[in-house]
Each structure stands twice: as structure tokens, then as C-alpha cells.
Design a protein around this nucleic acid. Structure first.
Lengths: 195, 195
DNA sequence: CCTACCGATCGGTAGG
DNA sequence: CCTACCGATCGGTAGG
């Protein structure tokens, strides 16, 4: 839509958009060319293959989440503060980089074995961060000692990853309220206090 | 793998398996034929088109969840009992009909407009069931009155829908414990009691 | 970034 | 359920 030639970054962003919308196998190089106003074959002056594009989009998605963990782990305070930083950071990434996140979450299976393996590793590390913060919380007494850190981590991550499917910032819930609602649900649950 | 000719049901089940594994656009009719031990073109004596297969797999997935709501709503007792029935029923469907569920959740976007519209409606009705049980719980005093039924319903459903991605029944957590862990997380949260 | 093209594969049909 | 095939589209290349 803008004037002049497309940069590699334009191509990768458009690929993220289409991969997120119709999936990797549902997107052809000619579709992507149309999106950028050029012939499908012209894309090969920017990129070596369609698979390379998927690799790069997924790499960007993974990198955003990697930064979330880094920043959250540096957060001063107790485990709940770090948990809040993880949740807030995750929400920011999902909202600000929706297409890369969606491709990272749902199209990584279309990668070759080696790249897919790396994605699985990155996800494990990410899950591990949630798990260790929960363990920290148990140790310091802010989280219930009978909590299963693995299950609790998966449940919280399930809520966070699903945001991409329904949350839109122009809706009735703003970002900071969303973060508090997720923390409230996960920390306190929805049951009335049982006396 | 079994002797004799394939039935329509065999074809639909194999389609569910491949659609779940590689996606609708990642599965060719020849792939599906290979899975069943016949030529891709022979599938057209069982089915009118590839799209028809997707429609049928998705329809089955939707039907399983429809039955969960029906049974749960007939459950005697209070709102928490009905919520437990929804969670247990959902877990059963995900475990027992994994491929149909996965296709229903992640490949329905590849349907034509009319069928996709119906899927969106079915999902809305399903979400609505969770929401009304939560409202019931608020009215009867078992669920905290400041709970947002819409958000809480989405959060719980996020946990349930994500099960398909990680839960395997041959792992360390059995079905009934999984149900109790999900209910515990959602109802009580993981925070230590704040005095 | 385009034109002109390649072999492979796609969903699907005709006829048996 | 198979053989033989159809036109369309796929990812990608050569040469400019």
C-alpha cells in the first residue's frame, strides 16, 4: 500500500498476517505477492523459500516471549510480582504481535524437524519460567503448598495463549484490567469464600 | 489396515485423524487414500468433495460438545454440580474424540461461510452454558458476586480447550484427578489464604 | 521486480 | 474401488 519497493521486513510481516489468517499451507506465494502488490515469483529476491518465511515469522514470535521471561525474572519483589510481570508481558505480546504469536502457536508444526524441535524447546523453557515462579511462591508462602506447579502453570498458560483467539483491545476490557482479571481468577478463583 | 472395504465412517475417521495432524489444507485426498489403502480418486465414491469431509468431521466435533451441555444442564444439585458436569463432560470429549475436537477447534475456519457461521453459533451457545451456570452460582451464593461471568467462562473454557494440546490419558494424571484439579484451580485459585 | 516458464501436485471426473 | 485423465495451481528457477 505504501510507495516504493518492499523491504524484507514488509515481506515477513505480510507473511505473518497471511499465515495467521489462513495457515501456512493455506497461503500461497502468489497470495503473498498479491498482498504486497507484486508477482509471487518476485518474492524469491527477498527470501530463499516459503519455508524460510515460516522460520522467520516463528522465530520472531518465540523471541517476543523470550524477552517477556527475561524482563519478568529481573522484576524485584516477591513471586507474585514476577507472576504479574509474566502475565502482563504475555498480554502485551499477544496484543502487539498478534500475527507472529498466532503463527508461532499454531503453524510451527509445519516447520522441518530441526526448527520444530527448537520451538518445542523454547516453549518448554517458557513453561518452566511459570513453573519456577509458582514454586517460588510456594516457598515464600504466597501460593498454596498443595498446588501442583506443573498443572497450575499449564492452566495459566492456557488462559494466556487463548487470548489471541478472542481478546481485542478495542473491546470493553482494557489491557490492565485483563491482566488483573487473569491474576484474580488464577490466584483467588471464583468460588465464594467458604466459611 | 482391516480387511474388506472401507465404510463412510472409516473415511470420516481417517479424515479427522489427518486434518487434526496436518490441517485441512495440509492434507490431500491422495494422503487420505493412502491412509485407507486406496487411490485418492476412489474416495469420491464415498464423499462428494474434500470440503464435505471437513463439514462432517466438524459436525461430529460440535455434536459431542452439544451433548455435554445437554447432560450437564439436566444434572440435579447446585450450580457447582452442573459446573463439574460441564468440566467432566468436556474432558471426556477431548480425550475420547481428540481428532474431531482438534479439527472442530482449529480447522473450522477453512469451511465455507455458511458452515463456519454455524460453528461460531454453536461455540457461542456452548460458552453461554458456562456463563449461565456461573450466573446461577452467583445467585445461589456459591460463586463470588464480583465475578465477571463472561470472562470467567472464557478463562475456564481456555483451560478446557487447551487440554487437547497436552493432556494424554496414559500420563501421570488420570481423568478424574484432572477434572478436580481444573475445578480447584478455577474455584479456589492457587493463592495461599490471605488472613 | 517482471516475464516466461518448469515439473509436481492438487481436487475432481469419466468410464468401467 | 481402479485406471486414466482433466485443468488449475503449487513452489520455485532463469534471465533480464
Amino acid at each position: 500500500m505504501s510507495a516504493g519497493r518492499n523491504t524484507l521486513d514488509d515481506v515477513v510481516r505480510a507473511a505473518a498476517r497471511l499465515f495467521a489468517q489462513r495457515g501456512y499451507h493455506g497461503t500461497s506465494m502468489r497470495d503473498l505477492g498479491r498482498e504486497l502488490g507484486l508477482m509471487g515469483s518476485s518474492l524469491y529476491s527477498h527470501v530463499g523459500s516459503k519455508q524460510d518465511l515460516l522460520v522467520e515469522v516463528v522465530r520472531r514470535g518465540a523471541a517476543f516471549f523470550g524477552e517477556v521471561v527475561e524482563r519478568a525474572m529481573e522484576t524485584e519483589g516477591d513471586a507474585i510480582d514476577r507472576l504479574r510481570a509474566l502475565v502482563a508481558g504475555h498480554v502485551d505480546v499477544v496484543v502487539d504481535h498478534h500475527d507472529e504469536v498466532r503463527t508461532y502457536l499454531y503453524e510451527a508444526w509445519a516447520l522441518d524437524d530441526e526448527h520444530r524441535r527448537r520451538v518445542v524447546e523454547a516453549r518448554d523453557r517458557y513453561e518452566q519460567a511459570f513453573r519456577s515462579v509458582i514454586k517460588e511462591g510456594i516457598a515464600e508462602g504466597s501460593i498454596r503448598p498443595d498446588t501442583d506447579p506443573k498443572l497450575a502453570g499449564i492452566f495459566l498458560l492456557s488462559i494466556l495463549n487463548a487470548l489471541e483467539r478472542w481478546y481485542r483491545e478495542d473491546g470493553p476490557v482494557d489491557r490492565s484490567r485483563l491482566v488483573e482479571e487473569i491474576l484474580r481468577f488464577s490466584l483467588d478463583g471464583i468460588a465464594a469464600d467458604r466459611l
